[in-house]
Design a protein around this nucleic acid. Structure first.
Lengths: 230, 230
DNA sequence: CTCCTCGTGATTGTGCACAAGGTAGAGCGC
DNA sequence: GCGCTCTACCTTGTGCACAATCACGAGGAG
């Protein structure tokens, strides 16, 4: 995460993209906890740019639903309460279920790729360290993204991303017991089978079950971001 | 649409909000057709501000899904093809159906307000001019928004807005025959009844039927954007 | 005649400075 | 002692200027 601080724009990458990515990662990793303010100048200094790209990046984060803006008072990291998380999860089930159903009949699903992702996840079924968990998370995300892509042309993937890439969902897999991890991988295989069979309702049911199980794991585990064990 | 051009920020309103609202209206009204470019300087001049707020407004539009950004090449109004519209409509049915179902059981639905909106729409059941259609559209939007609000706390209303406030959906009601308009209003009444009864699946079914009927009207009618019969 | 290359114009990306507004703190009055 | 008000600072909002990059067209070579 060092990044060239000096030239700040030497490469083709746009500064605003860099800032956006960094802030996003910091929020998702909990470095910037829910409710913490996003001061433009502080971020600009840390990133080695001026306030202009930082402003844009913050607005984009707000558009992604990761920050909230108050006029003349700046932005802060969005804070979710228990009910919000329930709503989020419901919508995730709805949209990802829809995506799975569509993927089964759209004929645009790359089942070979899905199977390969399953293979690679199962190769890590007994993760030993952070690197393994990170890799599984990456693969899992890629798997779901492939389903989204196959289930919708333009709108659905964006919409789903908004709901999936929310809080804590990020590091959910870390909380899975080895047993639950196996079952999760098995559900992935079921989903591939449903898609290959072209059975929309089967695919929707598998995805629904898959996500509801995930919700239970998160529910059972303790706090959200900010401790606040109230 | 004249707006104070001179002081450009005298009132408490933020310039960026003004620009955003104006551009949004222009896109939805077809003044800026799909595919047309959004040049910052031109807009800035027309709005009487500098490029800075215009940039922000354009980025926000892109976040809303109304414009697409190309790095270093500017932004243009999003263009939808037939398949995109199908996808959009499917998601609208899914999300608004979900919202209706939730509204029926959440206990947060203001059925008095819904009924009143029905009353006011039915008072205009034989619209005579643009003003009537505009008013019906406003009331219809308020009705649906109330359902969204009652069906979700934070995420759902935003998500639905993204799908509903797309292209052409705006002026759909203008294409309804008097007969279809009556049936549409009747469906609104049914929805209120379902919500009052607390029957989630009934509410979902009514909303689904309501929207599918709307899709048919749009399908039967002719072109997409760029109507510009003026 | 066609294709490649180079130059020119136009448009966006970034940095910086000033203005407007809000918040927090201290001081004063009740 | 408590509450109000006013002031000073801090942060964001806007305008403007320069730099970077891309598209288009003209010119020349093959």
């Amino acid at each position: 995460m060092v990044d060239r601080v000096a030239p700040a724009g030497t490469r083709g990458e746009q500064a605003v993209d860099r800032v956006h990515a960094v802030l996003r990662a910091e929020i998702l990793d909990g470095v910037r906890p829910a409710g913490s303010r996003l001061r433009e100048e502080e971020i600009a200094e840390a990133q080695g740019t001026s306030r202009t790209p930082v402003r844009e990046a913050i607005r984009r984060l707000a558009g992604d639903g990761l920050a909230v803006l108050a006029p003349r008072r700046g932005a802060e990291v969005v804070a979710w309460d228990e009910e919000d998380l329930d709503e989020l999860f419901d919508l995730r089930v709805l949209l990802e279920g829809h995506a799975a159903a569509r993927a089964a009949t759209s004929g645009r699903a790359d089942t070979a790729r899905l199977s390969e992702l399953c293979d690679r996840m199962e190769a890590l079924r007994r993760p030993t360290g952070d690197r393994d968990y990170a890799e599984i998370t990456r693969l899992n995300l890629a798997f779901h993204r492939e389903v989204h892509r196959a289930g919708g042309r333009r709108v659905l993937p964006d919409l789903v991303a908004r709901v999936v890439e929310g809080p804590l969902v990020h590091s959910t897999l870390r909380r899975y017991s080895p047993d639950r991890l196996d079952r999760s991988f098995a559900q992935h295989r079921d989903l591939v089978a449903a898609v290959e069979a072209g059975d929309a309702e089967w695919a929707r049911a598998v995805m629904t079950a898959h996500l509801r199980a995930a919700r239970e794991v998160v529910r059972a585990a303790v706090p959200l971001s900010v401790p606040a064990p109230t």
